[in-house]
Simulated scan of single mutants.
Amino acid sequence: MSDRAVGVDLAFHTSALPVAPEGDALAPVLGRLRELGYRRAVLPPLDPAGTDAASLRTAFERADLAPIAMVGLAPGQDVSSDDDDERAAGRAALLAAVDLAVALGADQLNGVPYGLFGKPATAPGAAAFERSALVVGEVADRAADRGVQLTFEVLNRYEEGLVNTAAQAVEYVAASGSAHLGVHLDTFHMAVEEADLAAAVRTALPHLRYLELGQSGRGDLGSGAVDVAGVLRSALAGGYTGRVGVEAFSRALMPGAVADALAIWRSPYDDGLGLAERALALVQHAASGTPAPHPAVPTQQEARR
């Protein structure tokens, strides 16, 4: 097995690959990711009731790769709502996601536990912020008791309205009252909301538990408007020792409904494992301080657009 990403605890998001999150289908891909040098793979949000956790866990164990689980809330489960029953439903959904993470053997649960995915019709107020933080903080403490780190991803304004910046994320952690809640920053979203990406990482650093690398066009990390390597170098130089993730999306490799929900209209790459290999090389160069590799050549279908 390769150790090419020496010094970086690197994860790859399986949504970048044309494979269902099921044990038998995923197993060969997990093995290849481990051979490349990844230590973890991120699963999409899964239905706890409909997931064969034992099969998935076995696939990860055989690949010597650790899973990271994800959570999202459905309509009627908004923990920022002023409706007591809706908040209770959201809390129950979050706890069920913790149960699933434990069953999968995951020690981290990422995602959007603080509200509903999607651009809000109106600006969320301070009361919604406080209501959400209290519920998520309680769940983070319950998760920590079971060996699971709960994090929340900071999304851009077009995908969520409650927490959009690193500074807001720090305020949210404080409002939660939890010593266990972690922040998840993603360079794709940061490029929309932050004036200085490196400064945003420094702001969140005491609570940062997952730094995700995503490019402006959702494709190869080395081809886009975001200085992904620079952000990573700055984070490592500032003392970040946590997990680093790679995320990309290509419509050609995704279920249509998922691509629609994430507004993935194009196909910037057609080989998820090839992208994973190129991303690992970029991370290796950034971590070692050597010049980054040249950007990847666009796929044929992307070049025609």
Rank of each mutant, 00 (worst) to 15 (best):
M1H: 10
S2H: 06
V6E: 15
G7R: 08
V8W: 04
V8R: 05
L10D: 03
A11K: 02
F12D: 02
L17G: 01
V19C: 01
D24T: 15
A27Q: 10
P28T: 05
P28V: 03
R32Q: 14
E35L: 06
L36I: 15
R39M: 07
P44N: 07
G50F: 11
D52C: 09
A54Q: 12
L56V: 10
A59Q: 01
A59Y: 03
R62E: 13
A63P: 06
L65Q: 09
M70P: 00
G72L: 11
L73M: 05
A74E: 14
Q77M: 10
V79G: 09
D83R: 14
E86A: 10
R87A: 08
R87S: 08
A88Q: 10
L95K: 06
L95D: 12
A96S: 15
D99A: 06
L100C: 05
A103S: 13
L109I: 00
G115L: 06
F117K: 02
G118A: 09
P120F: 04
E130I: 04
A133D: 11
V136G: 02
A143S: 04
A144D: 14
G147H: 04
V148N: 04
Q149E: 14
Q149C: 06
Q149K: 10
V154D: 07
V154Y: 03
N156Y: 00
R157G: 08
Y158C: 07
E160Y: 09
L162T: 06
L162S: 07
N164Q: 02
T165L: 05
A166D: 12
Q168L: 02
Y172W: 07
S178Q: 06
S178L: 08
A179C: 02
H180S: 13
V183S: 05
M190D: 05
A191G: 09
A191S: 14
A199P: 01
A199M: 00
A200C: 02
V201E: 03
T203I: 11
P206N: 06
H207L: 10
L211M: 14
L213F: 09
Q215L: 06
G219R: 04
D220N: 08
L221M: 12
S223I: 01
G224H: 13
A225L: 15
D227I: 07
D227F: 04
V228F: 09
A229Y: 12
G230W: 12
V231I: 13
R233E: 10
A235S: 05
G239A: 08
Y240T: 08
G242H: 14
G245Q: 07
E247Q: 11
E247V: 13
A248K: 06
A248V: 12
A248Y: 09
A248D: 04
M254N: 04
P255T: 02
G256D: 12
D260R: 06
W265E: 13
R266W: 15
D271F: 09
G272V: 03
E277K: 02
R278N: 11
L280P: 11
L280Q: 13
L280V: 11
A281D: 15
L282N: 10
H285S: 14
H285L: 07
P291F: 06
A292N: 11
H294I: 03
T299L: 00
Q300P: 00
E302D: 14
